[in-house]
Design a protein around this nucleic acid. Structure first.
Ligand SMILES: [Zn+2]
Ligand SMILES: [Zn+2]
Ligand SMILES: [Zn+2]
Ligand SMILES: [Zn+2]
Lengths: 166, 166
DNA sequence: GACGCAATTGAGAACGATTCTCAACGAGCA
DNA sequence: TGCTCGTTGAGAATCGTTCTCAATTGCGTC
């Protein structure tokens, strides 16, 4: 039974990713056409690899996935494609404290912030409406108009703390 | 009268910086001695330049100040010295979204977060106890133990918004 | 004050992430 | 099918930062 429900969950996730990839490709196609750009085999492959993965991918990680399908795709193309995805609003770039830019799917996604385990690199997403409100209040008190913000909590996740407590 | 009060305020600030610089030098001396390191003319000059300035300095900005007093001090030495100040807890490194590390004095300073104007680069500091509490709550809900966090609000300050509204 | 040695320094090389350059290639359109 | 440009891959270039190394200099010891 656990096996069945696990594979069921996995199948659902896969299907969800497939739908998401599909939608992303549609939107990108339109965005690209609007500006007289071109759809290429490389871009399709990169976009596919990106949306069929989950989480917060670095260029290296994405390139690794892409290379499995076509080892001739260069890093520059991956950088260029992610820039396009970011500009079109389909992905968003995040700069955590590990030195490299990470990208996450932004398609129909709400705003959220992150909890990051400094030991195992697990990233957990959260939304807290009250914090968002307080941020606006703080900004207002200082005469600021906030256009974006970054809230990252770094620490140890439950598993890693358990290990280090031992 | 405004001139007098301005110069008075300036004098008070200068004096405050002088006291701060003094205290920092004391502490650094002890910290350095404890580990068998050495006090050098270059370090003294850099530490002096750093603490007598205010705000969030980049290495470039600090090096510029340092160079006014001794044009032979190399960038590597500034990097090395700021690393020591950071490790000793006298300064803290911040990574805003402009690509370079910025340092601020951390001597007897409470935790605070930042509001950053993306137009004129003004940085305003704030503390909000309620936000800090909510962060801990969020972390707890996810089984995390937070060791540090980053909260940065990017937007336009009052002045810059007024200009762009025109 | 001189001595010895480890710590420090400055200059430039090396680094890692990212962007740029450029010649070859290939989408999209007539 | 042929043209025109946008795109590609590889390597050079860039930028902030760290490393390397030979020369220098604190600083405890005599
Ligand atoms: Zn963890
Ligand atoms: Zn996320
Ligand atoms: Zn401003
Ligand atoms: Zn600050």
């Amino acid at each position: 039974m656990p096996t069945a429900s696990n594979s069921g969950a996995r199948a659902a996730r896969t299907q969800q990713h497939a739908a998401r990839t599909e939608a992303a490709r549609e939107r990108l196609k339109a965005w690209i056409a609007e500006r007289g750009l071109k759809q290429t085999r490389q871009r399709d492959l990169i976009v596919d690899s990106f949306f069929s993965a989950s989480g917060h991918l670095s260029i290296d990680e994405l390139l690794a996935r892409v290379s499995l399908r076509d080892r001739n795709i260069g890093a520059a193309t991956v950088y260029r494609t992610m820039k396009i995805l970011t500009e079109s609003g389909l992905a968003s770039a995040r700069h955590f404290d590990d030195g490299q830019t990470r990208y996450e799917a932004a398609l129909d996604r709400d705003h959220h912030d992150h909890l990051i385990c400094t030991k195992c690199q697990t990233i957990i997403e959260f939304e807290n409406e009250r914090i968002e409100e307080l941020q606006d209040e703080v900004a207002l008190e200082h005469g600021f108009t906030v256009t974006r913000h970054k809230l990252e909590l770094y620490g140890l996740c439950g598993k890693c703390r358990a290990k280090s407590d031992r």
